[in-house]
Amino acid sequence: MIRIVIAEDQKMLRGAFASLLQFEDDIEVVAEVPDGELAWEAILLHQPDVCVLDIEMPHLSGLEIAERIRHAGLPCKIVIVTTFARPGYLQRAMDAQVEGYLLKDEPIDYLIEAIRRVMKGERVVSTDLAAALFMKEENPLSERELEMLRLTKEGMTTEDISKALFLTRGTVRNYLSSAIQKLDAESRQQAVAIAEDKGWL
Rank of each mutant, 00 (worst) to 15 (best):
E113H: 10
I78G: 10
L133N: 11
G36S: 04
E196R: 11
Q97S: 13
G170E: 12
M156Q: 06
D49Q: 10
I55F: 09
L102E: 06
E196N: 14
A179H: 02
M119Q: 09
G100L: 08
A164M: 13
R150H: 14
I115K: 00
A191D: 04
E8H: 06
G15I: 08
D128P: 04
M135H: 14
F17N: 11
I80G: 10
R68S: 02
V52W: 02
A193D: 13
T168F: 12
L111R: 05
G155R: 06
S126C: 01
L21R: 00
E32S: 15
T157S: 15
I112K: 03
S61V: 13
Y89S: 07
R3I: 05
E159R: 11
A132Q: 11
R92E: 03
S142E: 15
E138K: 12
E138Q: 12
A31C: 01
E37P: 04
Q97D: 14
I115Q: 00
M119I: 03
L165P: 09
E28Q: 12
M1S: 12
L90K: 04
W40P: 01
V52Q: 02
A39Y: 08
S178L: 05
E32A: 09
S19P: 00
L45Y: 15
N174F: 10
V118K: 03
N139T: 06
L60M: 11
V192C: 08
S126R: 01
H46S: 12
V33W: 09
V125P: 02
P140N: 08
D197K: 15
F23W: 01
K136I: 12
F166D: 14
A42Y: 02
V33C: 09
E8D: 13
M156T: 06
R173D: 14
D95Y: 07
L53A: 05
L183I: 05
E145K: 07
E37N: 11
E159G: 01
V124M: 08
V192K: 06
G73E: 08
D95Q: 14
G62H: 02
L13C: 04
E37H: 15
D109F: 02
L45K: 15
M119S: 01
I27Y: 00
A131T: 10
A193P: 04
F84L: 14
T82Q: 04
H46M: 09
L90W: 06
S162F: 05
K11Q: 13
M12S: 14
P75Q: 14
E122H: 10
L141S: 01
I180F: 07
L111S: 03
S61C: 09
A191E: 00
D109R: 15
N139M: 04
A31G: 07
I43V: 08
A195L: 05
I180H: 06
A164S: 10
P140H: 12
H59D: 07
A16F: 12
Y175T: 01
I6T: 04
L165Y: 07
F17D: 00
E106N: 13
M119L: 08
E137Y: 07
L38V: 02
I6K: 01
N139R: 06
V29A: 09
E145Q: 15
M57D: 03
R188T: 10
T157R: 07
I161W: 00
K104W: 12
